[in-house]
């Protein structure tokens, strides 16, 4: 069995993907820990590794038809310094891991890892990001919500790679991201919250609300958002308790090593309340 392959370009990577069962590896910051076997030992993989972190095609950030296209292999540290990336996404990325791991970790890895605690996910759900999944013979574009199906589960086919993330061209003049974790800048999140809004003349033209870590997948409700859109901010401020109540039924956190369910729920709703109170 081959132990790994370093393709020269994306085409070669996809050809390898089509011919061999393989595990794509970008930065390796998730995989190397998940497959670790302890001190001084090399991680154990059951399939050959396909190295994709170096592929040029996956490392570009460009604007096409007004939408931002982010290559799956773009590093978290590159997102933070790129002027095409919105302040809202930067805010979330700055709170991820630590500088030395942000110099390794990729946005594509964060998405494909499909953890309900993935810090780029609430933003990507909130802006309706789309993903380009490529194989040698096909290309499909799907909404991120259709890609991640369960914790740690995505709909990537065995011959596909995630190549690009498309962020629709849309301005939000209020953005808010907070995560609650054990230690600043490290350990995975206990609860996270992304709020985005477009407010004009004290009216809510658009609002997006997404919660991480509080359910098997990211929580977002278009229905509740629609009930807020188009209303004056004063009306929304008065309706905060009612809005919190609606979201409370959707937030179903679990107890785990990181936190208790009750704490997660309380904190998440408080973050939402804080965001709504900042609209003006």
């Amino acid at each position: 069995m081959v132990d790994g392959f370093r393709p020269a370009d994306l085409q070669e990577a996809l050809e390898f993907r089509a011919r061999h069962p393989s595990i794509p590896i970008a930065g390796g910051t998730d995989l190397m820990v998940q497959k670790a076997r302890g001190f001084g030992l090399k991680p154990d993989f059951n399939k050959p590794l396909l190295f994709i972190g170096h592929l040029r095609k996956l490392r570009q950030i460009s604007v096409r038809d007004g939408n931002i296209h982010i290559g799956a292999g773009v590093l978290l540290s590159e997102l933070i310094i790129n002027d095409k990336i919105s302040e809202a996404l930067k805010m979330a990325v700055r709170q991820m891991a630590s500088p030395p791991s942000r110099n390794l970790a990729t946005i594509g890895g964060n998405i494909c890892n499909a953890s309900p605690a993935g810090d780029t996910l609430p933003y990507l759900y909130a802006v309706d990001a789309k993903l380009i999944l490529k194989s040698v013979s096909s290309e499909r574009i799907i909404h991120i919500g259709k890609f991640i199906t369960d914790p740690k589960q995505n709909t990537l086919e065995h011959d596909e790679l995630l190549t690009e993330i498309i962020i629709p061209n849309k301005i939000f003049n209020v953005s808010y991201y907070k995560k609650v974790g054990q230690r600043k800048g490290m350990s995975l999140t206990k609860a996270s919250f992304q709020g985005l809004a477009d407010i004009k003349n004290s009216n809510v033209l658009d609002i997006r609300i997404a919660f991480g870590s509080v359910a098997p997948i990211i929580v977002r409700s278009r229905e509740i958002e629609a009930s807020i859109i188009g209303k004056p901010v004063s009306e929304i401020n008065a309706a905060v308790p009612e809005i919190l109540k609606k979201y409370a039924t959707l937030i179903r956190p679990i107890d785990d090593a990181r936190s208790s369910a009750a704490y997660r729920k309380r904190v998440s709703l408080r973050l939402l309340e804080d965001f709504l109170s900042k609209l003006s």
Binding site: G27, G28, M32, L49, H54, P100, N103, L104, M186, S187
Partner: peptide
């Protein structure tokens, strides 16, 4: 061995990185 402590940090192309998280296939 899990990217949390930074004791293994080295420079890769002048940038700090955790060497415990890097598969050598990535250092070509």
């Amino acid at each position: 061995g899990e990217g949390e402590c930074g004791a293994c940090v080295v420079l890769m192309d002048d940038k700090a990185v955790n060497s415990c998280l890097i598969p050598v296939g990535n250092i070509e």
